[in-house]
């Protein structure tokens, strides 16, 4: 395989895994539910997205056939991540999970 493709795939893999790890670190160490929600919805989604691009590039480079179906996975993730985050946020608001005290603008009771 072309050395440049190898370097690009490696860089994307490392980047993707770092973002996935950062998402998990955010999930573990941030103080309350709503701040924790940010890590997985953004970092993990982008991390997996860049892993998928790396996979596409790898198979295009090693087998000389364009395989686009990984794109389907990326599109699916980018559509579903905000939906599940929104859903969980609504559930958490309804259940009145504990918030960090310094959270400003706490939502009114409906």
């Amino acid at each position: 395989m072309n050395i440049w493709i190898e370097i690009a795939v490696s860089a994307l893999l490392l980047l993707g895994c770092s973002f996935a790890l950062i998402g998990a670190i955010g999930l573990y160490r941030l103080p309350d539910f709503f701040t924790r929600l940010h890590g997985p919805t953004k970092a993990t989604t982008l991390g997996v997205g860049s892993l998928i691009v790396a996979s596409m590039l790898f198979f295009a480079g090693s087998e000389h056939r364009l395989s686009l179906h990984e794109l389907l996975l990326a599109i699916f993730l980018f559509i579903t991540a905000p939906v599940s985050a929104h859903m969980l946020a609504r559930a958490a608001l309804q259940q009145k999970v504990r918030l960090v005290e310094r959270t400003r603008g706490q939502p009114r009771e409906e």
């Binding site: 893999l13 993707g16 895994c17 996935a20 998402g23 998990a24 999930l27 539910f33 924790r36 929600l37 890590g39 997985p40 993990t44 989604t45 991390g47 997996v48 892993l51 998928i52 996979s55 990984e70 996975l73 993730l77 991540a81 599940s84 969980l88 559930a91 958490a92 259940q95 999970v97």
Partner: peptide, 20 residues
């Protein structure tokens, strides 16, 4: 909600492992 969020992230990470 924290547990459900952890489960969701777990499934996405499992997916990343499989792609890798």
């Amino acid at each position: 909600p924290d547990r459900v969020l952890a489960l969701d992230t777990l499934s996405i990470n499992a997916l990343a492992l499989i792609v890798l």
